[in-house]
Design a protein around this nucleic acid. Structure first.
Lengths: 154, 154
DNA sequence: TGAAAGTCTACTAATTCCATAGACTTTATA
DNA sequence: TATAAAGTCTATGGAATTAGTAGACTTTCA
């Protein structure tokens, strides 16, 4: 039940971009190099990941001097589920319960397959979290933890 | 977030064994060949899986003529989580939130890592289901679905 | 004693994962 | 307008994992 490095790095990068947004300021444009340094990710690998996210419409970019990446939409409108699916594919643990990529599994009778019933629950539980957690939610939550630990805001 | 074939087949086999138990009768002993036919699984592959489950203490076996596999404990005392972990390893999507196999991930500050907070929730949601669903629960639930579909009991 | 069952270990083909490399395009600015 | 700074795109490669096969071995019962 593992999140891939692609998924991990992509989510971390998006969370970082959302976290460096300041109120009443334009969305910050951040370079690959800076993200890769702050998050300790191979910049060449990250490059691919950000490009994928861009082609999926979750990031925008600016080329050339002073360029970089920035969120395609406000952080409140991008969910972790969207990011996850772009990088790691369907959320469902088994294809026969996938909404996005249904395929029958080999069980004799799908309607009464016990495994399918339970894995459907698992899928729903994961989707509930990932699709209802926006980048803004993550940023707020992290901020709350920081506060409770008595740390400064950055 | 995928369940492997190993995990799928193993869970299906265990569920089948639990489902073929009859009240007030000894736990049925079922041969690999029969399981593999009923569940459409390569019998050589299934053999390995059942052996792993046996070595983990979830199954018992009888060698020789009339032999086969049977549950090591009553179906109510074996959870899907136990089976899953034997075959597919830790449930957590990322090691830094794993109870069974914790390892730090590369994030700059683990305590305030937003991804870690959310993946902790995901882990808990999955564990809640898998560790609180026994083979007996699955059998009962399947039976309920059968009833509601107006099907016979086997 | 022989057939029916599980046990155990090794092997392999295919796929996926985690990158790395390098040539290319776009843009700001000196 | 040249140049450096940034993203774009495609190919390649090693390592690990996955899903299975093969085959020799052991145990048990009739």
């Amino acid at each position: 039940m593992r999140l891939s490095k692609r998924g991990e790095y992509g989510l971390r990068a998006m969370i970082m971009l959302a976290g460096s947004a300041r109120e009443n300021e334009p969305l910050p444009v951040v370079q690959i190099k800076e993200i890769s340094q702050r998050e300790q990710i191979s910049s060449k690998f990250l490059e691919q990941i950000l490009l994928t996210l861009k082609n999926a419409g979750l990031l925008h970019s600016k080329m050339g001097v002073g360029g970089g990446y920035y969120l395609a939409r406000p952080a409140s409108e991008i969910t972790l589920g969207q990011i996850f699916r772009v990088l790691d594919g369907p959320v469902a643990p088994i294809k026969c319960v996938s909404q996005m990529a249904y395929e029958p599994c080999g069980c004799p009778d799908e309607q009464t397959c016990g495994l399918r019933l339970v894995m459907g629950d698992v899928r729903n539980a994961i989707v509930d979290i990932l699709d209802h957690t926006s980048l803004e939610d993550v940023a707020k939550r992290r901020e709350a933890v920081r506060q409770s630990l008595g740390l400064a805001s950055l």
